[in-house]
Amino acid sequence: MTDYTLETEDDRLEALRRMLTIREFDTKAGHYFADGEIPGFVHLYIGEEAVGVGTCAALDPDDYIASTHRGHGHCIAKGLDPDLMMAELFGKADGYCNGKGGSMHIADIDSGMLGANGIVGAGPPLATGAALSISHQDRDQVALAFLGDGATAQGQVHEAINQASTWDLPAIFLIENNQYGEATPVEKQHNVDQLSDTAQAYDIPGVTVDGMDITAVYEAVQEGRKRAANGDGPTLIEAETYRYHGHYEGDEQNYRTDEELQQWKDRDAIDAFKARLIDRDELSEAEFEEMQAEVEETIADAIEFAHDAELPHPQEAYDDMFSDTVPEIEKFANRARTDGGDSR
């Protein structure tokens, strides 16, 4: 639940804490992936924290987000529990998806999190659909889709924004332009320089904000939310940001220079936000150290929780396909129950 804004001192400290939590979560996720304890792939959000947190701070707790393959940050910003997230990354039964989803599919519809998504560009149609439900039932919510610069080239993204615009749905489309679609720079994937320019194709406002400045993101999403909730339709927001790690953990990153990475790190969103809070006398170095220590403890606890959690029973592979059981799957499930699946 996103029960924080940037309007009060306490909320600003909470936002900073979330940014630190994301960085610590993903730092540790990277370590445990490298150690082989986390299977599959992980896509780390480190460097982009201001976008997720600035966005979720501007949303209401009940609002929906549709996330991307790089979704850990969105989850934490939205208020999901790091214990259950980490357990999911470790493939444990106590994870958000009982171990069936992993890093790329963490979801918690009750918290408004419509799922990380392994398909680039698949989130926006889902957000349009959620906005359709909201509009149809006249609920006081909005739906926001995070998408990357890469996804912005996808046909289904265009279809989703066009439909939401045509129907004036309460949706927001937030492009996290981290400068690379996988290993290919954004200039090689788009003819427009500013991805927000595509908003003109839908007759909706499009703005580009500094994704390393949490307040810039916050304000833009706040305005987008206002428009959406007023029935004025969607807004396209581009946040310019940068991922400090590779597209996936272990990616060689031969497509960019150390110098470029350093230039972005010099504008680090957490450092900048922290400096502003210190400047405003809302935070001291000592308090920051304390916050960092607490965050480290939170994530250490999450790792312990994930370590200690049980692996799913193999039999659970047969569950959750449908709302009911179908004989086709039951047949296999029964065989597995009786002979461990050997006769399948």
Binding site: V192, D193, Q194, S196, D197, A199, Q200, P205, G206, V207, T208, V209, A216, E219, A220, E223, G224, R227, T235
Partner: peptide
């Protein structure tokens, strides 16, 4: 200036967008 005409004033008011 390539980035003129794109900031949040396009959202908060009636400012116009000038694309590249």
């Amino acid at each position: 200036n390539p980035s003129a005409g794109r900031d949040i004033r396009r959202l908060t008011g009636g400012a116009s967008v000038v694309d590249n």
